[in-house]
């Protein structure tokens, strides 16, 4: 794959949650799958995440939450991306997310939700299929 066509993904931890095992692991998996990865670290507000996506010209924003705040944060990131005209940047999320919340999150514009136990290959494939084309 030519460097210009690399998918660029922001891996972000919204809110005060400190559980970053999954986020860090996926950052490494994405990089090994040929993506360009920016890991934001902890305590990101939706505004900070969207600003990073804008600055970095990202194709994908990956959000991780294990403290039960996904219904608050994920749709907010989608909305702010839209406000900035970044409609074609997809948002995916993972963490401790009850199945009954998935429908609502997807309706709000989150492209994919991946719960505990999802093989990382499945997430990589999903992103490669759904990320905007760089050509």
């Amino acid at each position: 794959m030519a460097p210009a066509s690399k998918i660029k993904i922001i891996v972000a931890k919204p809110g005060l949650d400190g559980h970053d095992r999954g986020a860090k692991l996926l950052a490494r998996v994405f990089a090994e799958a040929g993506m360009e990865v920016v890991y934001t670290g902890l305590r990101q507000t939706p505004e900070m995440i969207v600003e990073t996506a804008l600055q970095e010209d990202a194709d994908v924003v990956g959000l991780s939450s294990l403290s039960g705040v996904h219904n608050y944060f994920f749709p907010k990131v989608v909305q702010l991306l839209k406000n900035k005209g970044l409609d074609d940047v997809i948002v995916v999320g993972g963490g401790i997310i009850p199945k009954e919340d998935v429908e609502g999150l997807e309706a709000s514009g989150v492209k994919g939700i991946f719960g505990p136990g999802t093989p990382t290959t499945e997430i990589v494939d999903f992103i490669k299929t759904n990320a905007r084309s760089r050509n």
Binding site: G15, L16, G68
Partner: peptide, 22 residues
């Protein structure tokens, strides 16, 4: 909850969505 653990009051902007959660 996480705001308490991070030393923020419940009405702090960074506490939004987190109050009483974990």
């Amino acid at each position: 909850d996480l705001p308490t653990q991070a030393g923020y009051d419940s009405d702090h902007p960074l506490s939004m969505g987190e109050v009483g959660k974990v």
